[in-house]
Design a binder for these strands. Sequence first.
DNA 1: TCCTCCATGTAAAAGGTTACATGATTTG
DNA 2: CAAATCATGTAACCTTTTACATGGAGGA
Lengths: 185, 185
Amino acid sequence: MVTTAASLLEYALLGLILQGPASGYDLRKLFASTPMGTFSDSPGAIYPALRRLARRGWIAAGAAARGGRRRRLFSATAAGRRALGDWIGLDPTRDDVVRNWDALMLRLAFMTGNAPPARVTAFLAALELELLRYVAELEAFLAASGGALTGSGRLAFESGLAGYKAQALWLRRALAPSRKTRRAS
Amino acid sequence: MVTTAASLLEYALLGLILQGPASGYDLRKLFASTPMGTFSDSPGAIYPALRRLARRGWIAAGAAARGGRRRRLFSATAAGRRALGDWIGLDPTRDDVVRNWDALMLRLAFMTGNAPPARVTAFLAALELELLRYVAELEAFLAASGGALTGSGRLAFESGLAGYKAQALWLRRALAPSRKTRRAS
DNA sequence: TCCTCCATGTAAAAGGTTACATGATTTG
DNA sequence: CAAATCATGTAACCTTTTACATGGAGGA
C-alpha cells in the first residue's frame, strides 16, 4: 500500500507527536524555541496540517480538559507510525540532496525509535554516495566553466560547495564506527 | 519608495535577465543544467513568474523572431535594475540565516555588477555576525538539552551545526583579504 | 479590572507542483 | 515522414503566508 506523501511540515508534526502526545500549541512552542525553528510556527500552517493528519488517520485528538483549560491533545495512531516508517524507509535521491536536504535530515532525526538501528547506517551510506556524486558534479562545473563566475557569484558558489563538503566530512565521521565494525568482523 | 517583495524565483529570473536578455526556455535550461538547479525548471512556475515580473515593469518582452523560431526574449528595465539593487541592499537577518539561506546566497551571487563593490564585504561582515550568533545559539541549546537528543536525532543536529560552522569558516576566508587591507590602512 | 499569555481557529491571497496541451522545427 | 526537441502556455490542486478573530485563565 502506497500512501500519498504528506508535506514536510506534516511529517515533522507526526514525528514529534510520535514521541509523545502534544497539542498544536505545544508544537508551535517547540518550533519557536528549538533548532526545529526552521519550521514555521504560524497557526495558519500548523492547525490545518494537524487536521489533515487527523483526516488521514495518522493522528487522533483525545479529549484533554486537563486543568480545565481548553486543549486538544493529539496522539499518533498505528497507521501514523506505519506512515512515518514508510517515509523514513525512502532512500536518498539526487533530488533530495539538491533540493530537499531538510527532508533528509528530518528523516534521519526520526529514525531512532521508528526504524531498526541498521536503517541509520544504511541511510547514511546511501546519502554519502549521492552527496559525493553531487560534489563531483559541482567540481566538474567549476572546472568546466568556473572561469565565467564573477566575483560575488564565485563566492556564492564556493559557499555552496563548502557546505556540501562539510556534510561529506560529517557523514564520513558519522559512518566511521560502523565501517570499523565491518572491517573488524 | 518601497516595492513589495517578490518571490525568490522571481529575483533569480530578474538577476539572470539582468546579465543579458533571455527567454523562458533559456532560463529553464539554465536551471536544469547548472548549480542553479536548486530552482525548479518547471514551466508552470517560470512562465507565470516572468509574466508577474513583466506586469511589475521589471522586465519587458522584445519581439525576437531571430531565425524564425518563436521566442520571447525578455530584457530587464531600469526599474528592474533598481528593484534588484534594493533587494541586494537588504541586510541579513537572523531569520534569513535560519530559514532563507538560499535567498542570502542569491543576493550575494548577484552583487557583483549590480551593487558597489564595497557592498559585498559589508554584506559578508553582517552575515558573519548573524551566523556566529546563531551558531552560539545552537551550541547553547546543545549544552543545555543536548543530552535529550537520541541517536539519529543527535546526528541530524550535528549535521546542521557542522553546516553552519563550515559557512562561518568560508565567511572568515572570504573576508580575510578585506580585513588585512583594513588592518594595513 | 485590565492586560497578558494561553490556545485554537478562519479567510484571503499567492506561489509552486504536477500534468496536460499545443504547435513549430530540426534531425534521422 | 516520424520522432525528438524547441518553446510556450494553461488548469487544478495544495500548501504556506499573513492577518485577523475569539475567548478563557491568571496575575498586577
